[in-house]
């Protein structure tokens, strides 16, 4: 909610030419480039703390020092800096290489947004632990099939092990005949499974058109949805993005997924909180994955490729109505 509002504010600032001061406008740019991946202004903690009203919580001089060289402050043992470092998983804030003017612009922007909008907790993120869901197909078929195969293997091994209580000479010719049969059976089985599964790949077939195309840009540690492609960090200034979208029920959506920094995994979970589809988000490439959203409900998106300290916090949400 707040996110969208902030972006509308940015757009308004851009289209009405100078409604905001130059200071906060460049602060907005800096925030988007250097801070937004780890901090929000009023949407709760991410990798680092929520910066809503941080100007009221800390002294200006402290903020200026921290923003320009956080690592030196931790090294110098500043009590507040060290406490924050301990509290946020001992992840050191990188040095942003800002000069004093830029740092001021950044703080002015945070103050401006804090003043205009009250803080709110992000929508669509469950906070209380949820009970385990019933296993859905095809995951259930995979698990039960695997258990059946395992039991078969264990039975055969146990049976062979117990046979050693009653030693005898084994007719190797008969055994080799059995091996031939088993090998042929295995071969037929493998070819059958190949024939059944190879046509059911998740890769997009050219002949069909999706109902909707949504571009997804991943970076440490957020997913950004947009109507048009984002090819570089610079594009983020011209393109409206959000980490939450709504789509109509029974819609075939094509996600075009890329990454700006490292590899990420775009994993779409169903309303039953089990994987529905996924593709990798890779810098330099666009992977497109199609998802047919049939049921209304909340579809969480999680990062499925390890991407450093905030990996497990990187998420987005799709609401189907």
């Amino acid at each position: 909610m707040r996110n969208a509002a902030a972006r509308i504010a940015l757009l308004l600032a851009a289209v009405t030419h100078g409604a905001a001061t130059a200071d906060t406008a460049s602060g907005q740019v800096l925030f988007q480039q250097k801070c937004a991946a780890c901090h929000t202004i009023g949407e709760g903690d991410r990798i680092g703390p929520d910066l809503h009203d941080v100007g009221a919580r800390r002294e200006r001089a402290w903020l200026m020092r921290f923003v320009t060289d956080p690592q030196a402050m931790i090294a110098a043992g500043d009590p507040v800096a060290v406490r924050l470092y301990e509290r946020y998983n001992r992840i050191v804030m990188p040095n942003l290489a800002l000069d004093d003017t830029q740092a001021s612009a950044l703080l002015a922007h945070i103050d401006e947004v804090s003043r205009q909008h009250p803080a709110s907790v992000a929508v669509g993120v469950a906070t209380a632990p949820m009970p385990a869901p019933a296993l859905r197909s095809p995951q259930s078929a995979i698990l039960y099939g695997f258990i059946a195969a395992t039991l078969l293997i264990v039975t055969v091994f146990v049976w062979v092990a117990r046979s050693t209580r009653d030693p005898a000479t084994v007719d190797t010719h008969r055994a080799y005949a059995l091996r031939r049969v088993l090998f042929m059976a295995g071969l037929v089985c493998a070819i059958t499974v190949l024939a059944l599964t190879l046509p059911r790949t998740p890769y997009v077939q050219a002949a069909t058109t999706p109902d909707r195309v949504i571009h997804v840009t991943a970076r440490q540690f957020e997913f950004l949805f947009s109507d048009v492609a984002v090819d570089s960090t610079g594009d983020l200034l011209n393109v409206a993005t959000s980490d939450r979208i709504t789509v109509a029920a029974d819609t075939l959506v094509e996600f075009r997924v890329t990454a700006l920094d490292v590899n990420h995994g775009f994993g779409v979970y169903g309303v039953d909180r089990q994987l529905l589809a996924q593709t990798q988000a890779m810098p330099g490439y666009v992977n497109r994955v199609r998802v047919h959203f049939r049921e209304p409900g909340h579809y969480p998106v999680l990062c499925l490729e390890y991407c450093a300290a905030g990996h497990h916090l990187m998420r987005a949400g799709i609401t189907v109505e």
Binding site: P131, A132, Q139, L143, Q274, C303, H311
Partner: peptide
Amino acid sequence: YLAGAWSIPRRFAAYPAELAHGAT
């Protein structure tokens, strides 16, 4: 295996509330 069938991601330091059964 059970957690894998439940789509619990690998390499997560902590599980989100939706996937609390991963912690169990």
